[in-house]
Simulated scan of single mutants.
Amino acid sequence: MKKLLIGVAIVLVVCVAALAQTFRGATLPVTQDVAITLVVPPQVKGVQVSAIYAGQMESLAAFAYRGGSFGDTRIFGMGSILVSHPQGNLLFDTGFGKDVDLHVAKMPLLMRMTTKYKREETVAAQLAQAGVPLTDISRIVLTHAHWDHVSGIPDLAGVQIMTSQEEAQFIESDDPMAALIHGFPDLAIAPLNYREGPYLGFPNSFDVFGDGSVVMVPAPGHTPGSTITFVHTEDNKHYALVGDLVWQKEGIELPAERPWVSRWLVDKDPAAVRGEIVHMHRLQQMWPELVIVPAHDRRVWDTLPRFPAGFVRPAHAEPATAEAAPAASTP
């Protein structure tokens, strides 16, 4: 019995040591296997970006990227990035909705146990307070369909949702990570097709308004249909909305992936995520003016204009039709 206990203790020590190793700082090798050609971005009058805060969680930097400290508590913000364009306004993700308590209760047990969240005013409430009717929002664009990005959808009833074909299939599946949005009734989802050619080293793209100011590219890995969107404003600012490719900006700057336990919890294809992190790191080195915006890094969001600053009432023309079929139309 004594030998058995000693053996078990040794195994536990080895396992703990191996787990601890996955939190140690380790930068990703930066390869040059994908060619990146920079673009000359447009300056389209009326294109603006603003941030709408809608909830937060606390986490440790150690869980966000390899090399982060266990003594460094970070605010993981939730919310929407509002992209205003004369042809229509886009809300990227929704943050926490009014029923966030119910939404958290539906999460897998391990996720509930590790989630410490705080409410903030919902996106829908802030739009209403600013006198912005939902008819002035053309689309909710999902970077991906995890619960903390979709909780506010029921509060924005009637606004069409745009996401990739692959993410639409993820939403329709029985995957527990898409369970919340899967259970929402009467979703109006317009899956997009990346019908344009290469863009900034990504193999294909979708030009939302047809003028180069808002361009989406596929970035599968965190979820099957995650996206990155590049936004070029009228005042010559340039943003990359990378969703949860990384949780904090150090992920791109170093570059570094999430530690193993975080990857195991949330990433569908960690290898794809690693490749895209390196891609964005290289792009940042080539284009220092590009502001990379992780969905949860409140430090980066604090540098953005806050809604309602920059809001432009649309002319009620529509973004490009998301679906590929020539006869398809969207309200």
Results as ranks from 00 to 15, higher is better:
Pro154Ser: 08
Leu156Cys: 10
Leu156Ala: 07
Ala157Tyr: 12
Val159Thr: 13
Val159Asp: 11
Gln160Ile: 13
Met162Gln: 14
Met162Asn: 13
Ser164His: 07
Ser164Gln: 06
Gln165Met: 14
Gln165Lys: 15
Glu166Ala: 15
Glu166Val: 09
Gln169Glu: 15
Ile171Leu: 02
Ile171Asp: 01
Ile171Val: 11
Ile171Thr: 01
Ile171Phe: 03
Asp174Ala: 13
Asp175Trp: 05
Ala178Arg: 01
Ala179Ser: 15
Ala179Asn: 12
Leu180Ser: 04
His182Phe: 11
Gly183Arg: 08
Gly183Asn: 07
Gly183Ser: 10
Phe184Ile: 15
Phe184Leu: 15
Pro185Tyr: 14
Pro185His: 15
Leu187Pro: 00
Leu187Lys: 04
Ile189Val: 13
Ala190His: 08
Leu192Arg: 03
Asn193Ser: 15
Asn193Lys: 13
Tyr194Phe: 06
Tyr194Leu: 04
Tyr194Asn: 00
Arg195Glu: 06
Pro198Ser: 05
Tyr199Asn: 00
Gly201Thr: 08
Phe202Ser: 05
Asn204Ser: 14
Ser205Glu: 07
Ser205Leu: 11
Asp207Arg: 09
Val208Tyr: 02
Val208Asp: 01
Phe209Gln: 10
Phe209Ile: 12
Gly210His: 07
Gly210Asp: 06
Gly212Ser: 04
Ser213Pro: 06
Ser213Leu: 09
Val214His: 04
Val217Asn: 00
Pro218Asn: 10
Ala219Phe: 08
Ala219Thr: 15
Pro220Lys: 10
Pro220Glu: 09
Gly221Asp: 03
His222Ala: 07
Thr223Leu: 12
Thr229Lys: 06
Thr229Ala: 11
Phe230Met: 03
Phe230Val: 02
Val231Gly: 03
Thr233Trp: 01
Thr233Glu: 02
Glu234His: 06
Asn236His: 15
Asn236Asp: 15
Lys237Met: 13
Leu241Ala: 00
Leu241His: 00
Leu241Trp: 00
Leu241Gln: 00
Asp244Ser: 15
Trp247Glu: 05
Trp247Val: 06
Glu250Lys: 13
Glu250Pro: 06
Glu250Trp: 09
Glu253Pro: 04
Glu253Ser: 14
Glu253Asp: 15
Leu254Pro: 11
Pro255Met: 09
Pro255Leu: 04
Ala256Pro: 07
Trp260Gly: 10
Trp260Met: 14
Trp260Gln: 11
Val261Gln: 11
Arg263Ile: 02
Trp264Tyr: 14
Leu265Tyr: 13
Leu265Ala: 14
Lys268Asp: 14
Lys268Glu: 14
Asp269Leu: 05
Asp269Cys: 05
Pro270Cys: 11
Pro270Gly: 03
Ala271Asp: 15
Ala271Thr: 12
Ala272Gly: 12
Val273Leu: 08
Val273Pro: 01
Val273Glu: 00
Arg274Met: 09
Arg274Trp: 08
Arg274Val: 08
Gly275Ser: 07
Gly275Arg: 05
Gly275Asn: 04
Glu276Gly: 02
Glu276Cys: 12
Val278Gly: 00
Val278Lys: 02
Val278Cys: 10
His279Leu: 03
His279Thr: 00
His281Gln: 06
Arg282Cys: 00
Arg282Thr: 00
Arg282Val: 01
Leu283Ser: 00
Gln285Tyr: 07
Met286Cys: 08
Glu289Ala: 11
